[in-house]
C-alpha cells in the first residue's frame, strides 16, 4: 500500500493581518503552518497504514522553507517527503499547481506505484478546493471530494469504501484504487505525535526536486505562464449605509429592541424554563 498525501504550507490566517492602507498582506507576524486540512489528510493516511501497512509519502510544492510542512507531516507519521521547489512553479493558480504536482506524482509512481492519493479539502489561504480534483483528472483516477470517513480499504480487490459529505447527509461510495480523496476536518482527530516521530522528523531531510527532476514537462503549463486566472484587483467592498444605532441607556435600548422584535414575535418559540 503506497499512500501519497499532498500538503501545502500556508500563512496562519488566524493571525494574518491586512494593512488597511495598502490592502496588502502583512506577513510580518503570520507564521507559516501546515494547512490544517492537510494535517488531517496525513493523519488519515497514518490510520490507514496502521491497518494495511505500507508507505506514506508526502508531496508539497512551495518555497524552500516549505520543507517545514514535510517535517511536520513526518511528525504525524509519514515516512518520507518530497518538496517541489523551483522559480518555474511560482505564481501558479490551481490549474498550474495540479499540473506540476501530477508530474511529480508520475515520478513517485514510477518508483513505487501509488494506491491512494489524499489531499485536504482545501487550503485555508485560498479556500478553493480545486487542486485535489485537478490532480485526479490529470492522473486519470477518480476524485472523491469531501470525504468524512474511509470505511474500508480492500487491498485484494483494490477498492475503497468512502463516506462522502453531501449538502444534507452523506453518501457511501465504492471506488477502485488508485483514487484520490480530499478530506474534511471531521474525518479524524490529529493525534499527539509520539517522541520517536518528533526525533525522526527533526532529523529528516526532505527530498528536493526542481523542474529538471521531472520528466516530460511542458513548461508553458507551469507557474504564472500556465495559469489561466489572474487577480484583477483587490478591494475592500464598499461599506453599506448601515442601519440605525439605538440610543439611550442600556435598559432603554433593550426596550426599544424588544418593541422591534415583538413585530416578529411569531418567529420566537419561547421555551419553558422548567
Amino acid at each position: 500500500m503506497h499512500i501519497v498525501v499532498c500538503v501545502k504550507q500556508v500563512p496562519d490566517t488566524k493571525i494574518i493581518k491586512i494593512n488597511p492602507k495598502t490592502n496588502t498582506l502583512d506577513r510580518r507576524s503570520a507564521p507559516a503552518i501546515l494547512n490544517p486540512y492537510d494535517a488531517h489528510a496525513v493523519q488519515e493516511a497514518v490510520k490507514i497504514k496502521r491497518k494495511t501497512g505500507g508507505t506514506i509519502t508526502v508531496l508539497s510544492m512551495g518555497p524552500p522553507q516549505a520543507t517545514a510542512v514535510i517535517k511536520k507531516s513526518i511528525e504525524i507519521g509519514a515516512d518520507r517527503g518530497v518538496l517541489l521547489t523551483d522559480r518555474a512553479f511560482a505564481g501558479a493558480d490551481t490549474l498550474a499547481t495540479s499540473y506540476a504536482l501530477s508530474k511529480a506524482l508520475e515520478r513517485i509512481n514510477m518508483d513505487l506505484p501509488i494506491d491512494l492519493v489524499i489531499c485536504g479539502k482545501h487550503a485555508i489561504d485560498g479556500d478553493t478546493g480545486q487542486v485535489g480534483p485537478g490532480i485526479a483528472r490529470r492522473m486519470d483516477i477518480p476524485p472523491i471530494t469531501s470525504v468524512i470517513e474511509v470505511t474500508e480499504v480492500n487491498q485484494e480487490e483494490k477498492t475503497v469504501l468512502i463516506k462522502r459529505k453531501l449538502t444534507s447527509g452523506y453518501e457511501l461510495i465504492q471506488s477502485e484504487m488508485p483514487c484520490l480523496l480530499t478530506v474534511e476536518k471531521e474525518i479524524n482527530d490529529i493525534e499527539y505525535s509520539p517522541m520517536p516521530n518528533m526525533i525522526k522528523a527533526a532529523r529528516y531531510e526532505p527530498i528536493i526536486w526542481s523542474v529538471n527532476d521531472l520528466e516530460n514537462v511542458d513548461r508553458t503549463q507551469l507557474g504564472l505562464k500556465g495559469s489561466p486566472t489572474i487577480v484583477g484587483k483587490m478591494f475592500t467592498p464598499p461599506r453599506p449605509e448601515g442601519g440605525k444605532k439605538l440610543e439611550g441607556s442600556v435598559s432603554e435600548q433593550v426596550s426599544q429592541l424588544m418593541e422591534i422584535l415583538m413585530e416578529k414575535k411569531d418567529l420566537f418559540t419561547l421555551t419553558s424554563s422548567r
Partner: peptide, 9 residues
C-alpha cells in the same frame, strides 16, 4: 520525560 507518547529520551 516529555509529555508525548513514548516520551522518554
Amino acid at each position: 520525560r516529555t509529555d508525548r507518547p513514548d516520551g522518554e529520551v
